[in-house]
Structures are given as C-alpha cells and as structure tokens.
C-alpha cells in the first residue's frame, strides 16, 4: 500500500516556444502511513507534482502506482482515486460555494456517489475531525473567520475519507495560532486515523517538527530524499538551491564550534533544548 512515482515527466505547453519541463524524471515512493514533507522553491515543481498524485494532471511520460495499480491504465477509476487521495489546494477556502457549511462539506462524498445518509455522516465526522463548533454547521461559509473557513475546506476533503491527504501549504496566510491549529489537526489525522500525509511547505521549522520523511524538489527534479535529520545535516547543500535548515540547527553548529558538546543534528526547539541542557550539565 503506497504511492510510487516512476520516472515521471511533465511538460507544460508542449511543442510551443514557452515549453517548460515542470517535472523532470521524478521517482520516489510514499509508503503507507508516511508523513512526507515536500519542500522546494516557488516554481520547483511541488505544486505540479501534487496535482499528479490524484490524477488532475497526467504525466507526459512515466507512471504512478497507487496501491500497486497503475493509475494511467485505461480502466483505472480516476474518480475513485480522487476520493482516496484527497488534495487540499492552497487557500482552499476560496473554493467554498454552498449556502451553508454542512452542505459544502457534503459536496465531495456526494460526488463519490455515497447515499444521502452516508454522505451526511461523513460530513458530520469530518467537521468533528477539524473541530468546528457545532453551532457553525449551518451558517454560511462566507460568515466564518479565515481559520474556520480553512478548516471547513479541509473537512470538505476529509469527508471523502481519503487514505492519503495531500496539502499544498495549508498554513499560508494564517496567524501563528491558526498555523499551529491546522498543523496540529493534520498531525492528529496522521497519528490517530493513520492517514498518509503529504505536506507541501515553505517552512523548514514546520517540516522539521512534523514530517518523518522529506523530499526536496529543485527545477522539477528530486534534489534530496531522506529523513529530516539526513536532509538537514546537509545544510550547505540546501543553501545552494536557496533553502536552509531550521534555525536551531545553525545555532547548534555554532555552539559546537564554540566548544559545547551538543548534538548538531537537532532540528526542533525541543531537541535543541534537550541537547544544550545535557551538554551544560555534563560540563
């Protein structure tokens, strides 16, 4: 059970003068239950890549296997795939359209052909999962605050009961508390419901904190692929493509050079604090 990308290429405006190779021989695996952080610059191909995962864009060449089946097979059920791989776009609240929150969340499961009862049950569960207060279920989505709208939009995808949830910068434009709420929700979905997560993010700190696995994209290619610790131990390599390691990693390196016996692979505030305390107490 996993997603495998096998030599995927994608070319925009093929055959014209502004032909762009958006994905260039991309191969990697997203194992079942993974929490994948997908990082890279604007224009590195991240957004193009995630649109391949649920078949919105079709690779120019190469294959994608979902649970062992080639999604480009002629008889593959694309609609079912879109239910299994839930894609949450950037600023997903801009796609809300129904007259009330509940109806909007029903849109996805209804499209999948669920019965009225199952649709409503799925929508209810999803709204509960994103912790939207009950009294907001039947108000217009346009009346909600920014953070609430974002959660409703997330529920709209969750209601389709996806096995994989792909989120393109889900925290963009939110305040720090709103960011924590959304990331916390995503972590809960991963930990408690076992949903595989693909998180596209610009924030190294967030990826370091939440992801188990990181893929770094650059110019449409997979630039690096590994665990957060592996990736961020190559800070200078990341810097060559304009990215960086989390801030604390740099602090740890400088402390090490200054003579502290600290762990330079620390990538979160907690790990860094643990290691510094240990180093200080030891000495």
């Amino acid at each position: 059970m996993s997603i495998i990308l096998d030599h995927v290429n994608y070319i925009y405006s093929k055959g014209t003068s502004d032909e762009v190779k958006a994905l260039d021989d991309v191969s990697f695996e997203i194992p079942d239950g993974d929490f994948l952080g997908l990082i890279g610059h604007t224009g590195s191909g991240k957004s193009t890549l995630v649109q391949h995962l649920d078949g919105l864009l079709k690779a120019s060449s190469g294959s994608i296997y979902f649970n062992g089946e080639d999604i480009y097979d002629r008889d593959y059920d694309m609609k079912a795939l879109r239910g299994k791989v839930g894609l949450v776009f950037q600023y997903p609240e801009h796609q809300l359209f129904e007259e009330d929150v509940f109806k909007d969340v029903c849109f996805g499961p209804k499209n999948l052909g669920l019965s009225q009862k199952d649709t409503e049950l799925a929508a209810y569960r999803a709204l509960k999962d994103v912790k939207l207060p009950d009294e907001l279920f039947y108000v217009s989505p346009f009346e909600l605050s920014g953070g609430q709208k974002r959660r409703v939009a997330l529920a709209g995808v969750l209601a389709m009961k996806p096995e994989v949830l792909v989120l393109d910068e889900p925290t963009a434009g939110l305040d720090p508390e709103g960011r924590n709420e959304i990331l916390g929700l995503i972590k809960e979905l991963h930990d408690k419901q076992g949903i595989t997560i693909v998180l596209v993010s610009h924030s190294m700190d967030d990826v370091a904190e939440y992801a188990d696995h990181i893929v770094v994209m650059d110019k449409g290619k997979v630039f690096m692929n590994g665990t957060p610790k592996e990736i961020f131990s190559h800070a200078s390599k990341l810097e060559t493509i304009g990215l960086s390691a989390p801030g604390v990693t740099y602090i740890m390196r400088r402390l090490k050079r200054a003579g502290f016996d600290v762990d330079t692979t620390a990538i979160t505030v907690k790990e860094a604090a643990d290691s510094i305390i240990r180093a200080v107490n030891h000495a």
């Binding site: 305040d175 720090p176 508390e177 709103g178 924590n180 700190d205 989390p246 801030g247 604390v248 602090i251 505030v269 907690k270 860094a272 604090a273 510094i276 305390i277």
Partner: peptide
C-alpha cells in the same frame, strides 16, 4: 494567538529548564 521567533523560543525554553 502569537508566538516568538524560534531563537527566542529556544532561549526561553533553556531558561525555563534551569
């Protein structure tokens, strides 16, 4: 609903822990 930069957070955490 706000927070502090990571460096400030780390410093505060260290201080809290002794």
């Amino acid at each position: 609903r706000l927070t502090v930069p990571q460096t400030t957070k780390l410093a505060a955490e260290l201080k809290k822990r002794g």
